[in-house]
Write a protein that binds this DNA or RNA. Structure first.
Lengths: 200, 200
DNA sequence: CCACTTACTTGCCGCCCGGCTAGTTCGTAC
DNA sequence: GTACGAACTAGCCGGGCGGCAAGTAAGTGG
């Protein structure tokens, strides 16, 4: 009984470190959050963090790695689907869900790009985003920049709606739904060749 | 003659500090850029910065203040126009131009939200953004969240297209043009009540 | 030529950061 | 009941940071 019970006097310290770190990194930014603060929140000493993680950066990296997996699964799924409009719509829906599931981390990423950029883990995230936009591209590779843009904006609208100016109003889930609808419309229009009804 | 000649042996040190600071803040982020680095780039001592600015934060604030003025003018202009669709389109065009004119600072703002957020100057920028979105709102205050979202996304598409994932490809001005077109379309659709041609 | 100001430099300070080592407690296995 | 490793604590360290006081060269006005 008791299983192997590797890991922890108090149980799940490593996980708790990650939770607190994400919370504080999100509130104050990565650079401004000290290991001491994290330790204090957990009522342990700073060196205890050091037992579970090699460096401060390692804590951040571990957070991103946890997030990376579902995103990679999403990309893998999309890559073996036929590239129809319906599949792309489904991709956007699933991505929206992923965003929602890991909202604090995505928000952190959005608000600390300058920090994340220098991490190798940041590089690999950029790649993932590029793959995603690529999967949303139009059937003919040679649609104009604007149509490409529209597909790209579809993705980005999700981020924008959920995380940018996050004090606009109301519930995150509502905003997610609204952002999703806008994204889907943008995508549809990108596919159809944009039927603008204004003059310009 | 000579005017009062306040300001500077070598002429424009204050301005040069701002230039270098913006450059380095943009490259490495605010927190990671030290006053020593800025001073080195300018071939002066750190204390010289201290002569022109009270604190490190003051340098950043001064950058935002310079940017604030054209944005306030833009809002002032918009507020005394009739709130037609054409005016809103023009507002978006002008905003796009402003973004382009102060691209490095806007990029910095986008990539260092966690830092900027804590500044009072950050607060005032949020207010400006809210005013701008408000000016883009539909004639009837009570359009659905999605339509509001669409107007909001129109604004944000500008930022997204120009600054997010900035390694996508090509020239900034091209991207600005494309982003502008997408934004104008979004705005038009928000006004018309969105005529989606897909099913969902 | 002297008083005063501008635009710096020199040199230091205290703080707090991330990192680290050495010791300690405790649950479990045999 | 003791050996052992996992999970810590105590406490220190060097370094780099922002900030500042004091000194000074160069320019300007009278």
């Amino acid at each position: 009984m008791h299983v192997v019970s590797t890991q922890s006097r108090r149980g799940d310290t490593r996980q708790r470190i990650q939770d607190v770190a994400l919370e504080l990194f999100g509130e104050r930014g990565y650079e401004k959050t000290s290991l001491r603060e994290i330790a204090e929140h957990l009522q342990v000493t700073k060196a205890a963090l050091y037992y579970h993680f090699k460096t401060k950066e390692d804590i951040l990296i571990s957070l991103f790695q946890d997030l990376g997996r579902p995103l990679d699964e999403l990309i893998a799924w999309a890559e073996e689907q036929p590239r129809t409009l319906e599949m792309k719509k489904e991709l956007v829906r699933r991505y929206s869900k992923a965003l929602s599931g890991a909202a604090p981390l995505f928000r952190f990423m959005q608000e600390n790009q300058a920090t994340v950029r220098e991490l190798t883990v940041g590089e690999s995230f950029k790649e993932r985003m590029l793959k995603l936009t690529d999967l949303l591209r139009l059937p003919e590779g040679e649609a104009g920049l604007t149509d490409q843009m529209r597909a790209f904006t579809a993705l980005f609208a999700l981020h924008a709606g959920m995380f940018a100016l996050n004090h606009v109003e109301g519930d995150l889930e509502d905003k997610r739904q609204a952002a999703l609808e806008v994204a889907l419309d943008l995508l549809t229009q990108a596919h159809a060749g944009h039927p603008v009804n204004g003059t310009h």
